[in-house]
Design a binder for these strands. Structure first.
Lengths: 207, 207
DNA sequence: ATGATAACGAGACGTACAGTATCGAAATCG
DNA sequence: CGATTTCGATACTGTACGTCTCGTTATCAT
């Protein structure tokens, strides 16, 4: 979405006439969006509020994003996701990645924005088109760790890694979002061990 | 004793003066809420729309619920939840319960309302107070099935059943809500088997 | 029966925000 | 320069919220 603007020429594009879009305003809008998401949450976020916080006119926002939704999606893309860690063992990788990810939930609007976008998507298929690639990218390091597990012989080849990833993050998602629980870091290890217990002895899944 | 005409008596409470609240209007409001939730989803649901559909004044709604949120929570409580099934084996119970529950997602506004309430709760602790007991009740049959599994010797005593339940519903929640996927009924069996693989061999978790 | 009380459907009202349109000023092009 | 496009600001229309007030209706106490 974000076009390059501000300085002078537009990359390889034909130089447009008129005043270029301010990259400064672009950043200020996204920053204000993240700040307000953390402060008031998704549903209480207003475009007018963002404009005021960013010191920007409403039209400047609507010139770049069609509505509040794609704006929040882009801001969401700036939030931290899984970060790949290679500790030498599958269990070690997963525990390290999940522990770090849980910390991000305390310091960013992730806990608010994530479920809000998910809920909105449930009745807005168009949002899925924009959101799904972002979510898929956030998941990728998790899949990479599982693939390393297969290479190391920790997981049987032919295992459904997509389902395995869902089994690992599932309990965390349920507790964090659906049950509104805090997840103590000491719970990560047993969670991963429990999920891995099923994954390790699953050659084919079907039956 | 006096027959209950129209509205009827107020249980054991002291009879209040004035016209009693119409139970008919109450039902009409909740029915209209469920209809509109299915049609337009949570975020597009308006109290004015509910009032219009129910043939009721707005004040009649606000007299009973302080806002759209508690109204939807009450309507949500009328939607189907897990229904306990005892097939004789743990795997059979879980597969039957999940299969039936997934069907409910196709015929009710569950898929829309569930994530919407969850998202709202993320930035509204008050909502959690009302919502959590409802969610806990909906989960109860799942826990009962797991307890039968312990009694049958299918699960080691001392296993964290709460975590086990999260492991079972986790992948379904992730796919249904976070990834917006449809879950084919044929996927339920491998999902349950995968999760049970970890639960069955988990005497204490910390391996 | 009669009056007090409270809920009823309807809708007017003020507030808040969405999204569009318009302003003069500023930035960049040819 | 002059054409063009963005800038921040703000006026505007439309929708929904949540409150309030109508005249009406149901129920209780007397």
């Amino acid at each position: 979405m974000g076009a390059e603007a501000g300085g002078g020429l537009r990359g390889g594009e034909a130089a447009a006439a008129g005043r270029p879009r301010s990259e400064e305003a672009h950043r200020a809008i996204l920053d204000a969006t993240l700040e307000l998401l953390l402060e008031v949450g998704f549903s209480a976020l207003t475009v007018e509020g963002v404009a005021g916080r960013a010191g920007v006119g409403k039209a400047t926002i609507y010139r770049r994003w069609t509505s509040k939704l794609p704006l929040v999606v882009e801001a969401f893309g700036l939030l931290p996701a899984f970060e790949d860690v290679d500790t030498g063992t599958l269990a070690g990788d997963l525990k390290a990645m999940l522990t770090r990810y849980l910390e991000d939930f305390l310091s960013t609007p992730l806990a608010t924005v994530y479920p809000s976008l998910v809920a909105e998507r449930a009745h807005n298929p168009e949002l899925g088109l924009v959101l799904d690639p972002v979510l898929k990218g956030r998941r990728r390091p998790l899949e990479a760790a599982l693939e390393r597990g297969v290479a190391r012989g920790e997981i049987a080849p032919g295992t459904d890694l997509d389902l395995a990833a869902d089994l690992i993050v599932g309990p965390i998602a349920v507790r964090l979002f659906f049950r509104g629980m805090k997840i103590h870091p000491s719970l990560v290890d047993p969670m991963v061990d429990l999920a891995l217990g099923g994954i390790r002895r699953a050659p084919r899944g079907t039956e």
